[in-house]
């Protein structure tokens, strides 16, 4: 990571940006084709299925989108493992005890019980929650989806009762994933007043210094070597985050 100019810091390379695009596209396709099967009695579902050209075509699209997501999840795990083990990347997505403390600290801050929000590293606990949701959930969906796609093969080695189990997991996990993304991810990436109208970091690959200092102060300190002033040391009253960020930015420049 290096500072490109005074205003922005590079956060993601083109491959990570492409990965997000592909993940988002595949996820939308899976949700549209999957939920219309789960809720097949609704008019909207009937319309979607007819747009895809019938139930068989919808299932085909769903299955190949599933393959796509599976391949992407596997390549991600392989690339990340290779990067961490061989290239000595920072394992920045590893969940630490600090993440749970951060979550509690943040809630305290929201409730006005503490004066400062949690200070996070490269990825905060919300991002780790979503990341691991996608990776673990994706693997669960891939495994159960394949079992539903190839029940004959599965029951050659495993008990038949696992197929309805796979269906129960697949359908419930799908609903959970959909709700988390539509509520949590879309709020944080679009509707949160801090990013409205949209958080562009995953599309442009760069983050403003102000947001960096506000959201990832530990990473900022590590890459720049600057120690940011802690709010409660400077202010007697509760600080305004935006104003604080501006102050620190000017300090750097």
């Amino acid at each position: 990571m290096e500072t490109t100019n005074n205003e922005y810091i590079k956060r993601f390379g083109p491959l990570r940006i492409l990965e997000h695009w592909l993940n988002a596209g595949t996820f939308i396709l899976l949700v549209v084709t999957g939920l219309s099967q789960k809720f097949h009695t609704y008019d909207l579902s009937l319309w979607i299925i007819s747009v895809f050209g019938g139930i068989d075509a919808t299932r085909l699209v769903h299955r190949y989108s599933g393959i796509m997501l599976t391949v992407m999840t596997l390549q991600h795990v392989l690339v990340a493992s290779f990067g961490i083990i061989v290239k000595k990347w920072q394992p920045s997505m590893i969940i630490h005890l600090k993440d749970f403390r951060d979550a509690i600290d943040n809630i305290k801050y929201y409730l006005g019980l503490s004066e400062e929000p949690a200070r996070c590293d490269r990825f905060d606990y919300k991002q780790k929650f979503e990341y691991w949701g996608v990776v673990v959930g994706g693997m669960l969906m891939a495994a159960t989806g394949l079992a539903l796609w190839f029940p004959i093969l599965v029951t050659r080695f495993l008990p038949g009762q696992l197929i309805p189990v796979a269906k129960a997991l697949h359908t419930n996990e799908a609903l959970l994933a959909f709700l988390v993304i539509i509520i949590w991810h879309i709020y944080n990436a679009i509707f949160s007043p801090e990013v409205l109208p949209i958080d562009t970091v995953i599309f442009t690959g760069k983050i403003s210094k102000a947001r960096m200092i506000h959201e990832h102060p530990i990473e900022y300190e590590r890459i720049t070597g600057i120690t940011l002033p802690r709010h409660h040391e400077h202010h007697g009253h509760e600080p305004e985050p935006e104003a604080a960020a501006e102050t620190t930015t000017t300090t750097i420049t």
Binding site: I152, G160, Q161, P164
Partner: peptide, 13 residues
């Protein structure tokens, strides 16, 4: 379901 084995019908609850 060509090739279905004895465990296969159990997948229907």
């Amino acid at each position: 379901h060509a090739g279905a084995t004895a465990a296969f019908p159990d997948s229907w609850i």
